[in-house]
Nucleic acid binder design. Structure first.
Lengths: 240, 240
DNA sequence: TCGCTTTTAATGTATAGACATAAAATGCAG
DNA sequence: CTGCATTTTATGTCTATACATTAAAAGCGA
């Protein structure tokens, strides 16, 4: 019924920017003008604009003024569901089947291992994610033995390695690469499809601070799995 | 060299939350305690916590206190670069080659058009995105003629349809679906590959308010294009 | 114990003023 | 005209204070 003033200012400009009335690059009134227009103190205008700046809708530069941001990249929020949850949510039984586990030294000739070379020994775990006992994803994972000493002895009957890691060693930074690949001979055999079948490939590297934790490559059967990203154009941060 | 105090407070707690030191649901010190701990005013603590709240890392409740938010889903920010920019950034020449453009009625039997059925007439545009004259993506696009009257006469020599639309009719909401597909016969012919070649398929629907604007299906050559997503500890919202 | 009112502790909003900072604009010396 | 120093201006940070808003907690009567 009575939204706070800084919120009204914020949403006024949010609306005008999102609607296109205020175009990217356009200069907005300075705080002094707005504190007159809205009859409030500068801190109130500042709070509204700070929130818009945090949301990436505007760009503020000292001395120059405040401008509507030009969105160079569209950042969208990708919801990455827990595989087990996702499968169970569709009423199917989830299972992780481990194929291989070994402790070994990194092989620097493989590109993704070169990055983990500084980690000392690695634990390699291969496995399958299954829905109703049918495999839908192949997972190849490398874990730094130094960063996660317990990993080599962990039991994945309950939780797959990804979930186990998340609960034991939360990351602080992650990078994902999404691409389309044809199933390799080995992957195809495990996934019960023809080699070359189009699959969605997700590669993820995670760090905790500056320490490398894990590299994982997941190959999903193309027809069985989609990634859905929803855009809150309003920018990240706000729930609503 | 000298980060502002509210920023230091913010990043302190951001780090401790993201690292798992502060667990979801855990209560944080009240503002009074922190203004003593950091030897500053309450407004400074408040500013730091407001930013964390906007970023969704904490949850603040009057009288009850401030708590570490429990993340419902693992979401990550996916940066979708402008195709033309991306290509030019790699030192290649970008070009869009239009294959087909027509104004027609929707065909409700096709699933994606059914959603656009209420839009009246549609403009269909097929085209290729090329890097150094080599096609790397096929694009099939439908645009509501009512929502974007100028689209039928737009010139795509300068900017591809996506960029043109973005500049003329910014969306307020969008949904993306990412999957792996095998190139169809037609797509394969345009992309100069064998049918069935694994490709990354991005389907996007955009709205402006409640009005449907466009549906687009882009098929990328698997080896030529990746989507990269980064979950920075920096959290959502800030550009950097 | 139940249900109501009152208290109270926490965040939320807003103010006015002070000083810091950075970059655009200006002026000046050469 | 060029290069450099100075000024100006708009945002950035921070304080101290005041009052509003909520919802948990406490009190209390039936």
């Amino acid at each position: 019924m009575k939204p706070p003033l800084h919120e009204r200012i914020r949403s006024d400009f949010e609306t005008r920017i999102l609607s296109g009335e205020l175009e990217p690059g356009q200069r907005l009134p300075i705080e002094q003008e707005l504190m007159v227009a809205y009859d409030c103190s500068r801190m109130t205008v500042n709070k509204a604009f700070s929130a818009l700046a945090q949301a990436g809708l505007i760009d503020r530069r000292k001395r120059a003024g405040t401008f509507v941001a030009r969105p160079k990249v569209h950042s969208m929020v990708l919801d990455v569901p827990d595989l087990a949850e996702e499968v169970r949510g569709r009423g199917q039984a989830y299972a992780y089947r481990q194929l291989h586990r070994a402790l070994r030294a990194p092989e620097p000739e493989r590109a993704e291992e070169a990055m983990l070379a500084a980690c000392g020994e690695l634990v390699q775990v291969d496995g399958l994610h299954c829905a109703d006992a049918v495999p839908f994803a192949f997972e190849y994972r490398l874990v730094s033995a130094r960063a996660v000493p317990d990993f080599a002895r962990a039991d994945f009957a309950q939780d797959p390695p990804g979930t186990w890691l998340l609960q034991h060693v939360p990351w602080t930074e992650a990078e994902n690469r999404i691409s389309a690949v044809g199933a390799s001979a080995g992957e195809a055999a495990h996934l019960l499809v023809e080699p070359g079948t189009p699959c969605l490939c997700v590669e993820r590297s995670t760090w905790r601070g500056s320490e490398r934790i894990t590299y994982v490559r997941q190959v999903f059967l193309g027809e069985a799995y989609d990634l859905v990203a929803r855009f809150g154009s309003a920018g990240p941060g706000e729930a609503a």
